[in-house]
Design a protein around this nucleic acid. Sequence first.
DNA 1: GGTAGACCTGGACGC
DNA 2: GCGTCCAGGTCTACC
Length: 315
Amino acid sequence: MGSTLRITPPEDYRLSRDACSYGYFLLAPNRWHPSTQTFTRVLATDAGVTRIAITQPGIGERLTLRCDRTLDRASQQQVRAGVSRMLRLNEPAKTIAAFHKVDKRWKKSGRGRLFRSPTLFEDIIKTVTSCNVQWPSTVHMNRRLCEVLGDKHDAGGSFPASAKVARTRPSTLRARCRFGYRDARTVELAKLHRKGAIDEAWLEDPATPDDDVRTFLISLPGIGPYAAANIMQLLGRYAHLPLDTESVRHGKVVLGMTGTDAKIMKKIDAHFAPFGEHRFRSYWFELWAFYESKRGPAHTWDQDEVGSTFTASQL
DNA sequence: GGTAGACCTGGACGC
DNA sequence: GCGTCCAGGTCTACC
């Protein structure tokens, strides 16, 4: 008999739309179940590891979190905080409306929130695992990382805490999690996080300028311009675009751009400039709409199939 | 400031 | 089954 928690989301919140909005919802330990429209994941708390299952009966209605073990008050708070961060429940309807005012294309569907991880550390590591590989490798690295280093649960491992990764040998990440040359960089990132050198409050503080955040992130091992821009959107800073080969494909195929890859990236940057501080969301939902036009709505995707085949060249 | 090449892995391809 | 090539972003050395 486990605990059941309930969270009241913003009035426009729709779980199937807002959870299935960014690729990380497909990465371990996250799992979306299309047949029941349920999100599950194994989550570590100070009191132990639990599997949570999140459902919502309808738009704006309360989210139900079913945990497979009974949680004490402190653990309940940790679960609530993690789920709130992951599902962007702190983004009220009015900030989404502000985005729709700038980019009216998404007003009807209501898109605006982007899925992320329960912790910044997980977002950073997931970003590193998405660099210089195709999607199936990112899927594999995250699954192995949870299996090898996560707290064990019948439903799979949790995402490991920075303290655990910091104690891990780079060779373990390389040999057992297929991290390749990202091994030492990942351990170094974990050490920096564990000792408090990555200050989430400062990074999320609206008073901290974007340029300062970007400069800091690029100073971290394994983080370059693409990864920094991606982590910034995960932090809620949407003014920069993480430009990669996928952006170039989008520029060519959807926007009809021509020229070298470098020129197309500059054109994309300029193309989305009018959306200002909402730039990334306009860019991303355009990409997402393209994927959904090929594969159907994201909340219907089969996770195993998408995990093994989802690459831009196959769309 | 710009650029070439190395870094790893997994998949595609040819033999 | 084996070898080769390629895609992917970051980092370093070099101009």
